[in-house]
Simulated assay, not measured.
Amino acid sequence: MLLAVFCSPALAQQRTQYVLAVSWQPAFCETRPDRSECESQTADRFDASNFALHGLWPQPRSRDYCGVDDDLVQLDEDGDWDMLPEPNISAALRDELLVMMPGAASALDRHEWITHGTCYDGNAEAYFGDSLDMLDAINESPVRQLFAASIGQRLTQREVRAAFDSAFGRGAGDRVRLSCVNDGNRRIIDELTIGLTGRPEGPDSFGELIMAARRTDGGCDGGVVDAVGLQ
């Protein structure tokens, strides 16, 4: 006899996997100085000493472009992001996004919504609102404090992961991966990717989402925390 097994929406949501990508913008701009958001970056701007939003990526990545027309997919893949439609979000959220996702100046928000946000369980307001809630959780934690206090110095993978353990619970760092790029004779940290399971319910839920995710390799073994301006 076959038994029908039904999964409740809450359980299905709990099991959904995501990756949150946050950038250390000075390092990003080190290799892309001609980007609009990089030309305008200053030492007193938010993203000089806070993490910036890159994106929130439902997993697996084969879920990209959910219900998106082929012509929009082609525009995105060709890099013509400024020709993509703007995400339908409130003016207040738009203002937050322009600060916390400086890449929106180069239409990163349009790219992230078309590619990944359309596969999120919710509209653009929920997708970007949830993303910024989780970014807030990182920027209000010992992780950001560690990076801000280490500008111009080298951090190891172990130190970064330990900061996540301190902020969000023992083992949280095992869900974090460092990305580094070479800049002349320096290696700089340009991004962190964090595994998550489930949808956030405000910044306070972030630790639970990390601890429910699968462990990952740590990526690069460490690098310099870059300061604003070409080094």
Rank of each mutant, 00 (worst) to 15 (best):
L2P: 06
F6D: 04
Q17A: 05
V22G: 01
V22C: 02
P26I: 06
C29N: 08
T31G: 01
C38K: 11
E39H: 05
S40M: 02
A43V: 15
R45T: 14
F46C: 02
D47N: 11
F51M: 06
H54Y: 06
S62N: 07
D64G: 11
Y65I: 08
D69W: 06
D71K: 11
V73H: 00
L75C: 14
D78C: 10
M83H: 03
A91Q: 14
R94N: 15
R94Q: 15
M101G: 12
E112Q: 11
T115K: 13
T118Y: 03
D121Q: 14
N123W: 02
A137N: 00
V143T: 05
A148M: 00
A149T: 11
I151P: 03
G152L: 12
G152E: 12
Q153M: 10
L155H: 09
R161P: 09
A163T: 10
F164N: 04
F164H: 05
D165A: 02
S166Q: 13
A172G: 09
R175T: 03
V176W: 01
G184M: 05
G184I: 04
I188G: 00
E191Y: 06
L192T: 00
L192V: 00
T193C: 01
E201H: 10
P203R: 11
P203G: 07
E208L: 07
D217E: 15
C220V: 05
D221I: 04
V225T: 01
Q231I: 15
